Simulated assay, not measured.
Amino acid sequence: MMNKYTKQQIAFQKKYGDWAIVTGASEGVGREMALSLAERGLNVVLVARRVELLERLSETIKKEFNVQTMVISADLSEISALKSLVQSTSALNIGLLIANAGYGTSGPLINADLQTELNMLDVNCRALLVLSHHYGKRFSTQKKGGIVLMSSIMAFQGVPNMANYAATKAYVQTLAEGLHIELAPYGVDVHASAPGPINTGFSTRSNLKMGAAAHPKTIASDTLNALGKSTTVRPGFLAKLLEYSLKLLPRWGRVRVMQLVTKGMMSH
């Protein structure tokens, strides 16, 4: 059980405590974010659809880090769930929002189920906007706080066979860049985290087979360490490698490269 903190952890608590909200906390990057925040001494609101996974994570956090947790089972594609989340956390001293919930699909858009694509738009964009708007207001009143929006390496160009997903991440990226400037005068840190391939359940849901992929713990650690220091962080070695590989190409060239990348991930 952790009860001693480093100077860096104490500074993090002072800036972003007492409570952090992590959406999509049941697995992958969201789960690692929650664990890392608890290790830094923050109480954590765990939000996802699968309550049994959240309950298990909650017990682990309370046992290992001696902090508080709140478990909220919610489908963030539903506006009622967003309102419930806001109401449930109204009495907590929230200082940090990690908007991690999201998913992707793969294949030609014209062959996709439209309702699934619209649902993805609601989770990846609308929910993130609602939460950023609400907690951004709260943090600006407090004169401190932070917002992390999960972007992607796919946010910086169109991506054939993942066109709608990449478009949702482009929205996330540009929203983070704008809010970074808007909220800075209020002492609120906003940044986008734009990882490359990650070894999570995302690939299963989007029907992709990843080759090299970063570990979620690396993504979480690099993202939180960069909070307050940059507009966009590209966590993990793969994200940086892809950035430098694509940097000198014109936008149309990056689109073609990403077409080859997604084709390889869909080859199975």
Rank of each mutant, 00 (worst) to 15 (best):
Q68K: 15
C125E: 02
K217L: 06
A99K: 03
Y16G: 08
E39N: 14
A170D: 10
F65Q: 02
Y244P: 09
G264R: 02
L128R: 10
W252G: 08
V71D: 07
G201S: 12
T223V: 06
Y5F: 15
G104F: 12
Y135H: 06
G107I: 04
L129N: 05
L242K: 10
V188L: 05
L149F: 00
Q68S: 15
R40N: 13
Y16K: 07
Y165T: 10
N100T: 02
G187Y: 05
L128K: 04
G228L: 02
L224Y: 00
V67R: 09
V257E: 02
L85R: 10
L54H: 02
G196F: 01
L238C: 11
L131A: 11
L242N: 09
Y186L: 05
T174R: 15
L118M: 14
G17E: 06
G228A: 01
N164C: 12
P108K: 14
R56Q: 15
Y135F: 15
P216S: 09
P216C: 03
K14H: 13
Q115A: 13
V188K: 00
R56F: 01
H133K: 15
P235N: 09
V159L: 07
H180V: 07
S140A: 15
T262W: 09
E59P: 01
Q115P: 04
L53H: 14
Y103W: 15
Q87L: 13
S26M: 01
M266W: 08
P216T: 06
G107E: 09
E182P: 02
G201D: 11
C125A: 13
V261T: 13
N66W: 06
T200C: 01
E78K: 15
N111R: 14
V233Y: 06
Q142S: 03
G136Y: 04
L241G: 12
I10M: 15
S245G: 13
L97C: 05
F156I: 12
I198D: 04
L57S: 01
R56I: 04
P235W: 07
P235D: 06
Q173G: 07
K14E: 15
R31A: 09
N119V: 07
P160L: 12
A239Y: 03
Q13N: 10
A74H: 01
P197R: 01
T232E: 07
E243N: 13
P216R: 01
A214P: 07
S26E: 04
D222L: 05
Q115Y: 03
Q9D: 08
H268F: 13
A101N: 02
G24L: 08
Q142E: 12
H268L: 08
R126L: 13
L121S: 13
Q68Y: 07
E59T: 14
S26C: 10
S106F: 00
S26H: 11
L114W: 14
M120W: 05
L128A: 05
G102R: 05
V188E: 01
L241W: 13
K217Q: 14
